[in-house]
Amino acid sequence: MIVLWHWGIILGGIMVATYPIRLTFVVLLAPERMPDIVRRGLHYVPSAVLAAIILPELLLTEGALNISLSNDRLLTGIVAALIT
């Protein structure tokens, strides 16, 4: 029982470290009140996020840069990008 309490506390802490961040702007800050530059910048978030997630997956093999024909992921990615 004590063990479960321990996990419950960690879980609660992690929830507190997650949900409020996601709520911040959606609830607290109206888009009208955002500075213009921020609002325009938001336009680039989705593409920047996608690229920042994908490129390391394509270019890194076990943490090291691998730009060569032996990198299957890179080759697959290039083909996929071309046919999309």
Partner: peptide, 15 residues
Amino acid sequence: NLRHAFYSATMAPMS
């Protein structure tokens, strides 16, 4: 999770 603040801000105009 700080990057979720970005997501939240991007969603703000949509929601």
